Computed example of a mutant assay.
Amino acid sequence: MEKNKMAASAILTPKVGYGFADELKRARFWVRMVLVKPQDADVLGRNYMVAMVDKRRFGCLVVVSDDSDFVEVFQEATLRWLKTVVVGDMSDGALKRIANAFFSWSDLLMGK
Rank of each mutant, 00 (worst) to 15 (best):
E2H: 13
K3V: 14
N4C: 09
A8C: 08
A8I: 07
S9D: 13
I11L: 15
T13E: 05
T13Q: 07
P14F: 09
P14Q: 04
K15E: 12
V16W: 05
G17R: 03
F20S: 13
A21D: 08
L24F: 12
K25I: 09
R28T: 05
R32G: 00
K37H: 11
A41K: 07
D42H: 08
G45R: 05
R46Y: 15
N47Q: 13
N47Y: 09
M49S: 11
V50Y: 11
V50S: 06
V50K: 08
A51P: 00
M52Q: 15
M52I: 00
R57Q: 10
F58T: 05
C60D: 02
V62S: 02
V63E: 01
V63Y: 07
V63L: 13
V63M: 11
V64P: 00
D67G: 03
F70Y: 13
V71H: 09
E72H: 12
V73N: 08
Q75T: 11
E76L: 14
L79F: 12
V85Q: 00
V87G: 02
V87D: 00
G88S: 02
M90V: 02
G93D: 01
L95D: 00
A99H: 02
A99F: 05
F103N: 01
S104H: 04
S104F: 07
G111T: 04
K112V: 12
